[in-house]
Design a protein around this nucleic acid. Structure first.
Length: 737
RNA sequence: GGGCGGUUAGCUCAGCUGGUUAGAGCGCCUGCCUUACAAGCAGGAAGUCGGGGGUUCGAGUCCCUCACUGCCCACCA
């Protein structure tokens, strides 16, 4: 029975063993509750893993996220709740398509050369091959998810949910299609949402261009109106110039027309109070097809829109002599030609924000194009109420403000993407009457004219449209049957969402809007209608920090400062890394990951190992212990319900002390975890185990061992050992075993 | 242009609703291979809590202000 343990803790072998065992036994599965017994009196604790992209490799952010969730899930499970943690992966539209495009290109082919069907098949291949990378890594790390419930956002039943959601919103008049200014990525050749545009400060120029004024006789008067622009190439699509109605410099030009240089087109001067008199020259060239402000102006003043660029941001046929040129080449030539013609009034240095595609960093081109949108106000309205009425609580609290502020100023959501990878929009265009048929199942003919000349919309949906539905779709919505009904009742609303603030709007906000909107049609278990309070996707949101490098720099491949969690884990062990993250996870600040801390916690793991070693090494006592039944005690099922101390008023002081300390620490850890204070929980455990249990209690035990050799004292010593085991075991439980 | 954080030991960070000599890890110094652990043990040095002002019997903790720093949001060409 005495154990020969190595002197130093080697995590690898032990972790490999247990990780494999946990997965094999699917130890953390939470099957659909029994039809008759429901949850059997237990309450549930449900968490969704923020689904990693299929393109990803596990990074420190995942590791932090999973460590926190795992701690909470295990803690709740130990507290007797039905803890369910659902894993899955996200198809990640653009990101994945880009990845596979690159692969295809490296083979000398291209996406278009392959064609849609073949390309999509390639992406599926790719997904099958690499898509499980992160989940595989998670398995090795031993996260306590229910692997039997693993999903992929393009699984059949989840795609059904996406389609249902789209059709319903359409039927409710909340999805519309139209030509509006969208953010267009010329590299990805798709529209992207406002959130997918990141702005960088750019030292550019403000070009001042003279537009000739035309007299009543149709000839140039010799006067000019000078406009200022940061994007001269867009002038090819100008359909007006706007000035402020009360700008006295230009009063005499009211009602006049201008000759658009290079294009020789007559354009009106319009008056609009939106124009700032202070900025630039006080005269704004108006390009409704290439600027959101100008688009709005165009709507107000009934101006035509001339789209002068194609989907690759090359000038199209509307650009006359410049057709075929890249936007920046065109800019250069246009500026040069203006200068030749004496129409360039000046060039100023100008610092302004330029939008880039979040994915590929290409400069975004605002561009008029026909897209699908969600009329978001009604959904936002509910999502605001859900939070304001306290049905969803944010931690840290300040994110509630951030959330509400965004939600209250929300714009319609552009959900269509000109991609091939994703959920294809369930809409069909009629070749005969040109109307649209939106349907749950592929229609055979146009619902308006009955024509069979229909073709499906080529666009796919924004990735976040499907992930926003996950809280309801993974539990069976919209097809709630007698079977999965129990699941929905038991686990929806989920208890908690743990995620980073970087997807607060992308995902958290969308989930709240979509889930609140769609879950209402599923009545409560007792048949009563579902209130807003029970429609929410989760009751709590815990937002954690970003993990940065030791110098507080964002980790990025280009900077080469990425700390690969798997490497660190290999070196120090999973527990050491997890303990580091937990201990550094204090609210409000980013985590500057410091390997020195991990070294310290590897030492802690070693300390725990050696405490066990000490206890097991008491050979002679262990033998006696066997006789005295201490191992029976350890085998006792009661032990599974927590150690029984056998502490009484007569017990030695140190026994009573350590047990009382254990209880206090347990309480402290409970408190800390219920406040999401992983750092405080970690610190309490660390201090207790090392500073009290090892430094004091085990030392006192040594003294007892040395000074109580006779039989009469044996019981006391054994009781001490029993307490050792007990505290040790309990401490391990605290560490979320 | 709005909004939100941060600024505490050499480094990375705690310090909850204001209350005894301001804490931890790593690092540093001194002494120890004491039969669980040198990834250890015993002990030690180290901070005018960003600057200034205020409230209070009492402030790292509340208020004002300044400075520096980071982040989010925003259609000024």
């Amino acid at each position: 029975m005495p154990h020969e343990l190595p002197k130093a803790y080697d995590p690898t072998a032990i972790e490999d063993h247990w990780a494999e065992y946990w997965v094999k036994e699917n130890l953390f599965a939470q099957p659909t509750p029994d039809q008759n017994h429901g949850l059997n009196g237990q309450t549930s604790f449900t968490v969704l893993l923020p689904p990693p992209n299929v393109t990803g490799r596990l990074h420190m952010g995942h590791m932090l996220n999973q460590t926190e969730i795992d701690i909470l899930v295990r803690w709740q499970r130990m507290s007797g709740r039905r803890a369910l943690w659902v894993p899955g992966t996200d198809h990640a539209g653009i990101a994945t398509q880009m990845m596979v495009e690159r692969q295809v290109e490296s083979e000398g082919s291209s996406r278009r050369q392959l064609g849609r069907d073949a390309f999509v098949e390639r992406v599926w291949d790719w997904k099958r091959h690499y898509g499980g990378a992160i989940l595989g890594q998670m398995k090795r790390l031993g996260v306590s998810v229910d692997w039997s419930r693993e999903y992929f956002t393009m699984d059949e039943h989840l795609s059904v949910a996406v389609r249902e959601a789209f059709v319903r919103l359409y039927e409710q008049g909340l999805i519309y299609r139209g030509a509006y200014i969208v953010n267009w990525c010329p590299r990805c050749q798709t529209a992207i949402s406002d959130l997918e545009v990141v702005y960088d400060e750019h030292k550019g120029h403000l070009w001042e261009i003279r537009y000739p004024v035309i007299g009543d006789d149709g000839k140039d008067t010799g006067e000019f109106l000078t406009v200022a622009t940061t994007r001269p190439e867009t002038m090819l699509g100008d359909t007006a110039v706007a000035i402020h109605p009360e700008d006295e410099r230009y009063t005499h030009l009211h009602g006049k027309k201008l000759r658009l240089p290079l294009m020789n087109r007559e354009i009106p001067i319009i008056l609009d109070e939106w124009v700032s008199r202070e900025f630039g020259t006080g005269a704004v060239k108006v390009t409704p097809a290439h600027d959101p402000n100008d688009f709005a102006l165009g709507q107000r003043h009934n101006l035509p829109s001339i789209n002068v660029m194609d989907e690759t941001a090359h000038i199209n046929a509307e650009g006359g002599a410049y057709a075929g040129l890249d936007r920046y080449v065109a800019r250069k030539e246009i500026v040069a030609h203006l200068e030749e013609q004496g129409l360039l009034a000046g060039i100023r240095d100008h610092v302004h924000n330029v939008g880039h595609c979040d994915r590929c960093k290409t400069v975004v081109e605002p561009r008029l194009s026909t897209q699908w949108f969600v009329k978001i106000q009604p959904l936002a309205h509910k999502a605001i109420a859900a939070v304001k009425e306290g049905h969803i609580r944010f931690t840290p609290e300040m994110y509630q403000k951030t959330y509400l502020n965004w939600m209250e100023n929300i714009y319609d959501w552009c959900i269509s993407r000109q991609l091939w990878w994703g959920h294809r929009i369930p809409a069909w265009h009629c070749g005969t009457c040109h109307k649209i048929t939106v349907a749950r199942v592929d229609p055979a003919k146009c619902e308006h004219c009955g024509s069979e000349q229909i073709t499906q919309e080529t666009d796919v949906l924004d990735t976040w449209f499907s992930s926003g539905l996950l809280p309801v779709s993974i539990f069976g919505w919209p097809n709630i049957t007698a079977e999965n009904r129990m699941d929905f009742d038991a686990f929806y609303p989920t208890s908690l969402l743990v995620t980073g603030f970087d997807i607060l709007f992308f995902w958290v906000a969308r989930m709240i809007m979509l889930s609140c909107w769609f879950s209402t049609d599923i009545p409560m278990p007792d048949g009563s209608p579902r209130s807003l309070a029970d429609s929410v996707p989760y009751r709590e949101v815990y937002i954690h920090a970003l993990v940065r490098d030791a110098n507080r720099e964002k980790m990025s491949k280009t900077k080469g400062n990425v700390i690969d969690p798997i490497e660190i884990v290999k070196q120090y062990g999973t527990d050491a890394v997890r303990f580091t993250l937990a201990s550094m996870a204090s609210p409000g600040t980013d985590i500057a990951f410091n390997v020195a801390r991990t070294e310290g916690y590897r030492a802690f793991a070693n300390k725990i190992w050696n405490a066990a070693r000490f206890i097991f090494m008491q050979d002679q006592l262990a033998e006696n212990a066997w006789n005295f039944g201490i191992y029976d005690y350890l085998d006792d099922e009661d032990f599974d319900n927590g150690p029984q101390w056998g502490i009484s008023n007569e017990s030695p002081f140190e026994d009573r002390w350590i047990v009382s300390r254990l209880h206090a620490v347990t309480k402290e850890v409970d408190r800390a975890l219920s406040d999401y204070r992983f750092d405080e929980a970690a610190s309490a455990i660390y201090q207790f185990f090392w500073g009290e249990f090892c430094d004091w209690y085990l030392e006192l035990i040594k003294i007892r061992l040395n000074f109580s050799p006779d039989k009469t004292q044996q019981a006391s010593v054994l009781n001490a050992l029993r307490t050792c085991f007990g505290v040790y075991e309990a401490a391990l439980r605290l560490l979320s075993p």
